[in-house]
């Protein structure tokens, strides 16, 4: 399951963007998805993210994310509809529960629950996209200027993660060759076998850490003032994407303060499309946000554009 989720370099346009531009773009998505309450707006974001995930060749990962999220969506809907009493269209009333009051499900509460569920799916799709297009190495090297020790420690930990997993398998194999059968014995015996595995793994990992420290020392770690070298290119495509996301965000904010994208669920749900401006603003915001998608399509099919951005 992990191989699908973990970032892999596929030579995609979306992966070639500067990490700062990509992060700004994803951040705008995140803010809008948490800001908007209107189901139509959330649906549009979801649609756009679906296209982006497919463009990033992440269909399998995305489907995995959505399948995992569905259970939580149902939970969100059930909790919302049972607890909220603000809705005026009651579709089911149940028996009275002590300390709680009468059970009641209203259409508005169900609607709100479904919208919350949709928002959760938008969030999942967004982070699926993040996992597909942002390389952890690039991200961490971008942050290294701000917090050197934290980032260095996190980079080391990320680098060491697969090593620990590999060591675990190696130690298990060695134990098995020496005659330890991990699938045999009572539960307590098995626990003992595994706990010896754990101890060996912890000790050998920490010994490795000492080795790393010595090799860092040998490479002059902490011997003087540190220099910083950046090698990420800022290309026209990054400017275009950044402008698109900033434009979309400012327009969305302007719209939000003028009431576009807001939505009242209680006591009665609003009309979905109040006026033409509701759709117009949504379309413009989506246009700004779809710039990377459009560029990516063009980048694949049009060598001239490819040479210019």
């Amino acid at each position: 399951m992990w191989e699908k989720l973990f970032y892999r370099e596929k030579g995609l346009f979306l992966q070639s963007l500067h990490p700062a531009a990509m992060l700004a773009y994803l951040l705008v998505f995140l803010l809008l998805c948490l800001l908007y309450e209107n189901p139509l707006y959330l649906l549009a974001l979801f649609f756009l993210l679906a296209l982006l995930n497919l463009e990033a060749e992440g269909r399998e990962a995305w489907e995995g994310f959505l399948k995992g999220g569905l259970l939580l969506v149902v939970l969100i809907m059930v909790v919302n509809s049972l607890v909220i009493r603000a809705g005026s269209t009651v579709i089911w009333s149940g028996p009275a529960v002590p300390l709680w009051g009468k059970l009641q499900v209203s259409l508005e509460a169900l609607y709100y629950g479904a919208t919350s569920g949709l928002r959760f799916l938008v969030l999942l799709s967004l982070f699926c996209l993040y996992n597909l297009v942002v390389s952890p190495d690039k991200l961490l090297s971008l942050l290294a200027g701000f917090a050197y020790y934290s980032v260095l420690a996190v980079v080391l930990a990320t680098r060491f993660f697969p090593v620990v997993v590999r060591n675990l398998l190696r130690i298990k194999e060695v134990q098995e060759l020496r005659g330890v059968d991990f699938n045999q014995g009572t539960l307590w015996e098995r626990v003992q076998k595994y706990s010896s595995l754990y101890g060996v793994l912890l000790l050998s990992s920490l010994e490795d850490a000492m080795g790393i420290a010595e090799s860092m020392q040998a490479r002059a770690f902490g011997s003087g003032k540190r220099t910083l070298y950046r090698h990420h290119l800022w290309r026209p495509r990054d400017t275009i994407c950044l402008a698109g996301s900033l434009g979309a965000f400012s327009l969305a904010l302007w719209g939000w303060f003028h009431g576009y994208g807001r939505y009242e669920f209680y006591p009665e749900a609003d009309v979905l499309i109040k006026d033409a401006a509701t759709v117009g603003i949504l379309l413009l915001v989506c246009l700004g946000l779809s710039l990377p998608l459009l560029l990516s399509k063009g980048w694949k099919r049009w060598p001239f554009l490819r040479s210019k951005i």
């Binding site: 917090a147 050197y148 020790y149 934290s150 980032v151 260095l152 420690a153 996190v154 080391l156 930990a157 990320t158 680098r159 060491f160 993660f161 090593v163 620990v164 997993v165 675990l168 793994l201 912890l202 990992s205 920490l206 490795d208 850490a209 000492m210 790393i212 420290a213 010595e214 860092m216 020392q217 770690f221 902490g222």
Partner: peptide
């Protein structure tokens, strides 16, 4: 803030990083 305050020796840094990797794994 954690990374800014004071300096760390290579041993402290690598030990914490490896512990974090171990926990994450």
């Amino acid at each position: 803030g954690w990374g800014r305050r004071g300096s760390m020796t290579s041993k402290q840094l690598s030990l914490l990083a490896v512990l974090a990797a171990f926990c994450a794994a």
